[in-house]
Structure formats: C-alpha cells, structure tokens
C-alpha cells in the first residue's frame, strides 16, 4: 500500500520542551503547531502520553525523531517503527520526521546524528531503509539535512544531489534545517546559494531555525542560542523560493522563557524584515 502523503501546512511553531509544557497547557499560545521529539513519547504510559494527548487537543503536532537510524547498514528497527506507528495513529501528527543520517550499527546506538558518505552505496542503503520505514509507518517521511563535521573523500554526490535522489527514489519530503545548512557549509567551505539551488524545493514541508556554537575547530549545531543573524539571512533568501511550509524555532539547551521564543517566532513570521538587525 502506498504511504500517505502529508499535506502541506503553512504555519509557525515551536519545538515543545518540558520547561514550557505548563504554559502551553494553561492557555492557548500563539503558535500554529508544535513539534515534539517522538522518542520521548514512545513509552507505554504515564505522564508523557497524558501530556501529549492534552497538547494534541489544543495544537497541531509534528513528530520529530532522532533515532530512526535510517542510514544504518543494520536496516530499520521494526520494534521502533511499530511503537512510532502506534504513537502516530493515536496523535495523528502533521507528519513524521527524522534525519538523513545514522545513529548506530551492530546494535550499538551513539544517540548522535552521524554522517553518511554521499555515495551510491549509501544512497541504496538509505533509500531501502526509508522505503521500509514508510511501509511500516504507512506515511511518507519528512527528512532533515543534518549538520556535519566531517566529509568523505569517496563522495560521488554533493548533499543536495544526494537529497534529490533520495526524494526521487522514495517519495519522501524534506525538512530544511537552515542552521544545519549554515553549519555544514561553513565547516566544509560550501556555497549556500549553490546548495539551495540544487535542492528539490517542492519537496520541502518544514523549516527548522536554530542557533549554533563556535567549537574548537568548527561550528557545532548546539541549539543552545537564539537564531543568529547569519541564519536569519539565509532564511530570508530561501523562504520566497518555497511553497507552503511549516516554520519552527528549535531550542534544546539553555531554554529561555517562552516569551523569548515567541518573540523569535514573530521575527520568522515577517521575512521581509527578518534580516534587519
């Protein structure tokens, strides 16, 4: 059976994290959707599922995973996919997303988004896993470009070409993380304009906006700071080329009071002035 295609959704949202649960439940916040980390709710019961059910009563929800491990030579984890499908069937999310990366192999999970070489073999493995996952989940996936900190000398494609081929082979959609584009382009000396030009923009369903940190040797995708001007600038340039997309601020560390994030989201709503310092 063909996986269900997630319809486009135009709106502005936040990554929902524990410190803000109470405020989102106490009163309707000015967002069009929230995104939650799937794995935090792929549990048997208790407070996490109770909270998510009450959130879902008030908001549209996107489920964003970090452990689907789609690029792994191990293949997909059917138990993981069964749990995710059960959650999705209950929550009825806008879509299910995860990353163009792998997290583990040989049964060991690093819990980090590790990079794939952009080769025919890696594309074969990833495409097979994405098709298997979409089959098990009954839904086409939305997949995010990762921040990367190393590249492989045997790459035969660039990242946009790899993503385009993946979309063509699997029917998946894209979550464009603008911060990740900036981090990877800076770390590897790439031209962001050329990067975005080669992307199948009609496949983009969602945008992530986030901050990063300067590490010892390179930029690191830490999600612990406000969206920097460099990322706002890319967003302003890219947004007019996209169709209906869901735009979201993502913060995972040093989480500020909710009004600060809502204020950042207001800036995302006004792309015409988004680059104004």
């Amino acid at each position: 059976m063909q996986p269900t295609i997630p319809p486009p959704f135009q709106g502005y949202g936040l990554g929902l994290r524990v410190p803000h649960y109470a405020e989102f439940l106490a009163r309707q916040q000015p967002v069009d959707f929230v995104e939650v980390i799937s794995e935090n709710f792929m549990v048997e019961g208790g407070r996490p599922l109770d909270t998510l059910a009450r959130i879902r009563d008030r908001y549209d929800v996107a489920l964003h995973g970090v452990s689907m491990n789609l690029g792994s030579d191990d293949g997909v984890d059917l138990d993981y996919l069964r749990r995710l499908r059960a959650l999705a069937d209950t929550i009825e999310p806008l879509w299910l997303s995860d990353h163009v990366s792998w997290t583990g192999v040989g049964g060991i999970n690093s819990h980090d988004l590790l990079p794939l070489p952009y080769t025919v073999e890696a594309l074969d493995v990833l495409a097979r896993n994405v098709l298997d996952a979409q089959d098990a989940l009954g839904r086409a996936l939305v997949l995010e470009n990762p921040s990367t900190y190393l590249s492989f000398s045997d790459n035969t494609m660039d990242e946009p070409g790899f993503l385009r081929a993946l979309c063509e082979r699997t029917g998946c959609f894209l979550l464009l993380d603008v911060n990740n584009i900036f981090v990877s382009a800076t770390n590897h000396g790439l031209d962001t304009e050329a990067w975005i030009e080669r992307l199948p923009l009609d496949r983009v369903r969602q945008i992530h906006l986030a901050g990063h940190s300067q590490g010892v040797d390179m930029l690191v995708d830490t999600h612990d700071a406000p969206v920097p001007e460099t990322v706002w600038d890319l967003y302003r340039r890219f947004l007019p080329r996209l169709g209906e997309v869901a735009v979201m601020i993502e913060r995972d560390d040093h989480i500020p009071p909710l009004p600060e994030l809502l204020s950042e989201l207001d800036r995302a709503r006004q792309p015409a002035i988004v680059a104004t310092p």
């Binding site: 792994s72 030579d73 792998w102 583990g104 192999v105 040989g106 060991i108 690093s110 980090d112 590790l114 070489p117 990367t148 900190y149 190393l150 590249s151 492989f152 000398s153 770390n187 590490g215 010892v216 040797d217 390179m218 690191v220």
Partner: peptide, 27 residues
C-alpha cells in the same frame, strides 16, 4: 565497515586515521 569503524572511533575517542580527527572529536 565504515560505520562500524566510525562508531568505534566516536565511542572510544580513538579516531579513524583517514577521516578528519577534528570532526570525529565533535561527534
């Protein structure tokens, strides 16, 4: 093979020689 070697490297902190040591340190 690449994934098994890279995973071992990031779990142990002993990098794969033919890949960027700085990048492996981040992971």
């Amino acid at each position: 093979d690449l994934q098994r070697r890279l995973l071992t490297a990031v779990m142990t902190g002993r990098p794969v020689p033919e890949l960027s040591a700085a990048g492996q340190r981040v992971y």
